[in-house]
Write a protein that binds this DNA or RNA. Structure first.
Length: 873
RNA sequence: GCCCCAGUGGCGAAAUGGUAGACGCGGCAGACUCAAAAUCUGUUGCCUUCGCGGGCGUGCUGGUUCGAGUCCGGCCUGGGGCACCA
């Protein structure tokens, strides 16, 4: 065997079979050792795995295998986020049933994942589209409903009037339906929601406890929840509204700027705006135009600000006789605050843009520090910071915070129609979670509508509510709704004919508790087995894409609380540790005909520092484009199966761990893969060649200098790699292993020295043993092959992580850089435990320091122990 | 538009506020070879110098510090999210 190249095509399936047959990675719920739950975000079964999956699952697998080696009882499961739109699109476009499409994709992708050699417990696999999974989700929905956490309200959707269907935001392109091309309308539907806002304060406060989450994710969630302390103010209308309204309630976080108010604005969906629109054709037309923009906030806020002057006027609460015009404006969201604001253009950019467009007054009332009140003006940039009030009557001279309180106090004390005019209020940006989807391929919402009894939950005994198999997808609209029989059902309360809810759940619901189901997926009676769930949870390390930083993670945090409230789990926070990985990106290529071409179809030539590309089939030159996220549309994808077939899973795994820090994007390159594969072969060669030299290894006495150096390298590497893996710094761990392999290689390259020195041979045995154990979490197949070559029994997958000998990690002397005025000018080697005075004296005696000081005493000498010395001349 | 993040050699990158460029890729030179592949060794930020050495250098710009890739302010560029893609 030695001397031959390592053949992954032969070895990888062999070891995968041995692991599977031995159930090496099956996890028992009765294991007494300390638990470690590592989880990667489960995939949507789109058809094939992509490089992003390879990266994600490799990282998780390294952690899982490493923790196993550290003696933990590791839970490392896998499943499928299997409901969703693409299956329904496939049904429409390819005439294949969503279930068939989904399960076939799962089968194929499971095979791909297995070829990666992941240490997964496949016995716990779940698919969210399977009734064995979603029946429990339906049970929890009913529990949430009974606990007041699920309710119905009216919400807006994007409506395609031609396809008669609700469109996802991504299906609305430039205001038109992606399939029909019809202008999209907003439509109001009564829909199911989860009351996530019941936990706003808690979801916010609890972020502080998630100390193993990235700060950026916590910050994003904090901003998303968007707690703000402000004032609700009821303004008096100068003349009553169309249905007798006398006041307009607004929410503001800046009551201090009230004297700078120059207009009032409300959402096109505000009840008053709607009432006005019924009598004002021009306003109705404006509202219609707003409704055609769709429901996406990003679209609303990037659209040019437009408004319509209703002609109504609103009294300024503090300026006698002053009234403000009331506008309907497209950038005011009905979902935030009260759906109406007062506009203060000088101190809010959106208000300023609006005021400039319509020629409204701009009165600055907050003077930034250092500005001159006489000459201060606002141009096209609003001044939104703190300052001192001016142009503001009784507020003049106050700071912004004091002015806030003064206005709040006065308005709270003032009466308008029998109630205080102002009220301090905490407002959250977070909205309740709309879970209704008017689609087939999702978890049916287990409710029944009865004309007499109202909305009644499906009794537990009748769960699950199964999706009908015989749905049709060639008609516009919701297949569940137009199914001939499915929705007709007897009311569980009174027995009279009633109708099933035909909405299904948002797929984010499915992914909000799968990690809990993994703890006991065999429980047919209940979503969870409390004791088991409580033992495994929280997930110790969750790994997935940064694109899930807000929604999926926030919904899961809510869902866990809701499950706790309904008795299904005993904890609040599901993910103790979170890591967000970067994307896999690749160069793009355009062929001779100007179309995108696949990397598989081209050849790159390196010439004189430059790179050019041409078609493999000789049809012409290829233009190398920018590096972008791998996508089908740009054809810059690399199929993991091709890589695994050509190079082996270990090469692919090593590559995605190498070079790029895991939280940053990684660029897939052919050259990088070749480099990774070279290392696979190099480890194999080292183990084979090294083993051949160490037959005479013995425990014999004194260690030679060479033996000590190798032993030190071994233990320093173990310490460093361990530290790196604990911090998920896989690229650093890889670099340390390269370095270590180089050190081992230098020893193996001197066979005579090894043969003559039993201590060195012993150190080499130890080094190779450690190398294989350290490489095992990353390249498990290669490691097993090497383990056998080393003559070890059993599997390296079952072997413990090597132990660090602390004495070999610490050196006796250290070399300190010596700076003069912050620039490195010399080095100084001192004993590790040298005192500060000793170091200082030695530094001042250095020739370079003497020369720089030129006989004068130093102004300052900074000695940072074991780090650096800086002499200030 | 709003929120968040990133930017360092030819390339991917490393660096608890303390020697910028570890490690890898690529390049160059050499060894082995009839030759090539594979492998191994050396070298490789830029400018300057025969050399020793010196100067410059972490997107731009200003600041804090004995010392800034790292901290703070203002920009530029690229990316993620914005509630029905997952």
């Amino acid at each position: 065997m030695a001397g031959e190249r390592y053949n992954p095509r032969e070895s990888e399936p062999k070891w995968q079979k041995i692991w599977a047959d031995g159930e090496v990675f099956a996890t028992s719920n009765d294991d007494g050792r300390p638990k470690y739950y590592v989880l990667e975000m489960f995939p949507y079964p789109s058809g094939r795995i992509h490089m992003g999956h390879v990266r994600n699952y490799t990282m998780g697998d390294v952690v899982a295998r490493y923790k196993r080696a550290k003696g933990f009882s590791v839970l490392h499961p896998m499943g499928w986020d299997a409901f969703g739109l693409p299956a329904e699109n496939a049904a429409i476009e390819k005439k294949v049933h969503p279930a068939k499409w989904t399960y076939e994709n799962i089968d194929y992708m499971r095979g791909q994942l297995k070829a990666m050699g992941l240490s997964l417990d496949w016995k716990r696999e779940v698919a969210t589209c399977h009734p064995d999974y979603y029946r429990h989700q339906q049970k929890m929905f009913v529990d949430f409903f009974n606990a007041g956490l699920a309710y119905r309200r009216t919400s807006k959707v994007n409506w395609d009037p031609v396809d008669m269907t609700v469109l996802a935001n991504e299906q609305v392109i430039d205001g038109r339906g992606w399939r029909s091309g019809a202008l999209v309308e907003q439509k109001e539907l009564v829909q199911w929601n989860f009351r996530i806002t019941a936990f706003s304060e808690e979801l916010l406060a609890s972020l502080d406890t998630l100390d193993r989450w990235p700060d950026k994710v916590r910050l994003m969630q904090r901003n998303w929840i968007g707690k703000s302390v402000g004032l609700e103010v009821r303004f008096e209308l100068a003349t009553p509204g169309p249905t007798g309204e006398t006041t307009l309630k607004i929410f503001t976080t800046r009551p201090d700027t009230l004297f700078g108010a120059s207009f009032m604005a409300m959402s096109p969906d505000h009840p008053l705006a709607k009432a006005l629109g019924e009598k004002d054709l021009a306003l109705a037309a404006f509202q219609e135009k707003c409704r055609r923009m769709g429901t996406s906030v990003a679209v609303l806020e990037t659209a040019e600000k437009e408004g319509y002057d209703t002609g109504l006027r609103v009294k300024h609460p503090f300026i006698e006789g002053k009234t403000l015009p009331l506008w309907v404006a497209n950038f005011i969201l009905m979902d935030y605050g009260t759906g109406a604001i007062f506009g203060c253009p000088a101190h809010d950019q959106r208000d300023l843009d609006f005021a400039r467009k319509y020629g409204l007054e701009v009165t600055p009332v907050v003077l930034p520090a250092g500005a001159d009140p006489a000459s201060f003006t606002v141009g096209d940039v609003a001044v939104d910071g703190e300052g001192t009030l001016f142009n503001s009557d009784f507020l003049d001279g106050l700071g912004t915070d004091a002015a806030f309180d003064e206005v709040a106090d006065r308005l709270e004390a003032r009466d308008l129609d029998g109630a205080p005019m102002g009220a301090r209020k905490v407002n959250f940006r977070l909205r309740d979670w709309l879970i209704s989807r008017q689609r087939y391929w999702g978890c049916p919402i287990p409710m029944i509508h009865c004309d007499d009894c109202g909305t009644v939950p499906v009794p537990t005994a009748d769960l699950p509510v199964l999706l009908p198999d015989d749905a049709t997808f060639d008609k516009p609209g919701n297949p569940l709704d137009h199914h001939p029989t499915w929705k007709h059902v007897a009311c569980p309360k009174c027995g009279k004919p009633a109708r099933r809810e035909t909405d299904t759940m948002d797929t984010f619901v499915d992914s909000s508790w799968y990690y809990t189901r993994f703890t006991d997926p065999w429980n047919a009676q209940a979503p969870t087995t409390r004791a088991v769930a409580d033992r495994w949870l929280p997930v110790d390390q969750y790994i997935g894409g940064i694109e899930h930083a807000i929604l999926h993670l926030l919904y899961s945090r809510f869902f866990t609380r809701a499950m706790k409230a309904t008795g299904h789990v005993g904890l609040d926070e599901p993910f103790a540790g979170l890591f967000t990985q970067g994307m896999v990106v690749h160069e793009t290529y355009k062929g001779p005909d100007g179309h995108w071409v696949s990397p598989a179809d081209i050849v790159v030539d390196e010439v004189e520092g430059g790179r050019t590309a041409r078609m493999k089939d000789g049809s012409g030159p290829v233009e190398i484009g920018s590096i972008e996220k791998m996508s089908k549309s740009k054809k810059n994808t690399v199929d993991p199966s091709d890589i695994i077939l050509g190079w082996g899973a270990d090469t692919a795994r090593w590559f995605v761990l190498s070079d790029s820090p895991p939280d940053r994007d990684v660029i897939w390159t052919e050259a990088g893969v070749e480099g990774a594969h070279r290392f696979v072969q190099r480890v194999w060669r080292l183990v084979c060649d090294g083993t051949a030299l160490t037959a005479a290894a013995s425990e014999a006495g004194e260690r030679s200098a060479a033996a000590l150096a190798l032993a030190k390298a071994t233990h320093k590497t173990i310490a460093a790699v361990e530290d790196d893996i604990e911090k998920l710094g896989f690229n650093r761990a890889v670099a340390r292993l390269y370095e270590f392999a180089n050190a081992v290689g230098r020893v193996v390259a001197t066979p005579d020295a090894v043969k003559a020195d039993a201590g060195l041979a012993r150190a080499l045995v130890e080094a190779l043993d450690a190398l294989v154990r350290m490489v095992a979490p990353m390249m498990p197949h290669l490691a097993e092959e090497c383990w056998a070559e080393l003559g070890r029994s059993g599997l390296v997958a079952d072997a413990p992580w090597p132990k660090v000998d602390a004495a070999l990690v610490i050196d006796d002397t250290i070399t300190l850089p010596v700076q003069i005025n912050g620039k490195k000018r010399a080095e100084l080697t001192v004993p590790r435990d040298a005192g500060e005075a000793e170091v200082r004296a030695a530094v001042l005696a250095l020739e370079a320091v003497q020369a720089a000081l030129d006989g004068k005493p130093p102004k300052k000498v900074i000695v940072v122990p074991a780090r650096i010395v800086n002499v200030v001349a």
